[in-house]
Simulated assay, not measured.
Amino acid sequence: MPTDSFNQGVPWLDNSDKPDLRAGTKGIVDALTPRSVMRFSTAAERNATITAPQPGMIAWLTTEKLFTGYDGTGWVVLAAGSQKWTTISLAAGYAHDGNSNGTAQYRIVNLFGEVSLMFRGGIDITYSSGRPPNNSQINATALPTPARPTTKRTISCACSVQDTTLSSVKLDINPNGTLVLVGIGSTSENPPWVSLNGCFASL
């Protein structure tokens, strides 16, 4: 049984082969399917189905919204699906558009092959007796599971230089989906706004 002209191993029946509709069509289907973009609900379903992956295989994960490819040693992220910006649900005492930086939002992106969390927007902060609201946790609703890191990620965010000696503050992105500002409220460090523009974190 000969194969295709592109050396991809896709078989087809020749005139000299014994007529066998099932063998002919099954051979083509079995050869083309792993060379197409396969679709699975999750990475777990992909791994359970493809127990012996071959280099070059590509699979789309519906839940994670990721294109993944097998590089010979493991599955790697090739690209993230179209991820719309999602507005962060802010806790009481925090407001969107701090320093006219826009609504505080996030989205999941593929940054150099690494699934990452991207932020934009600004946050206004209203202090009570010098203390930040909600114990410095800015979000009222935790980030959804796909947007949560495997371990705590700490990033630096620009802030106002008024009412503080700081020019930036730390933001902890926790595995439970909470976003917590670190350093504000202590020793009268009360910047009235924090910017999330240009902030990234690996998941």
Rank of each mutant, 00 (worst) to 15 (best):
M1E: 10
P2C: 03
D4V: 12
S5L: 08
Q8Y: 03
G9Y: 07
V10L: 13
V10H: 09
W12D: 09
W12I: 02
W12G: 12
D14L: 10
N15W: 10
D17F: 10
K18A: 11
D20K: 01
L21Q: 05
R22S: 05
A23N: 11
A23G: 13
G24K: 02
T25A: 14
I28V: 15
V29N: 08
D30W: 05
A31K: 03
L32M: 13
P34I: 13
S36E: 02
M38Q: 15
M38D: 04
M38K: 08
S41P: 06
T42H: 04
I50C: 01
Q54M: 15
Q54I: 15
P55M: 10
P55Y: 01
G56V: 04
M57F: 05
M57W: 02
L61V: 07
L61H: 05
T62M: 14
E64R: 04
E64F: 06
K65M: 07
K65S: 12
L66H: 02
T68Y: 06
T68C: 13
Y70G: 03
Y70V: 05
V77K: 00
L78M: 12
Q83L: 00
Q83K: 10
K84Q: 15
I88L: 11
L90S: 09
H96Y: 03
D97N: 15
D97H: 09
G98S: 07
N99A: 15
Y106N: 06
Y106F: 14
G113L: 08
G113P: 11
V115D: 01
S116C: 11
R120F: 02
G121W: 09
D124W: 14
T126F: 03
T126S: 15
S128C: 01
S128F: 05
S128M: 04
S129W: 04
S129A: 15
G130D: 10
P132D: 08
P132G: 08
P132H: 06
P133E: 11
N134K: 05
Q137N: 11
I138Q: 05
I138E: 02
I138C: 02
N139K: 06
T141A: 13
A142G: 04
A147M: 11
R148H: 10
T151M: 02
K152D: 09
T154L: 12
C157P: 08
A158M: 03
C159N: 05
S160G: 06
L166P: 01
S167A: 14
V169M: 07
N176R: 08
T178L: 09
L179V: 03
L181Q: 11
V182H: 04
G183L: 08
I184W: 02
G185T: 12
S186I: 15
P191Q: 05
P191W: 07
P192V: 03
V194R: 06
L196R: 00
A201T: 04
L203N: 11
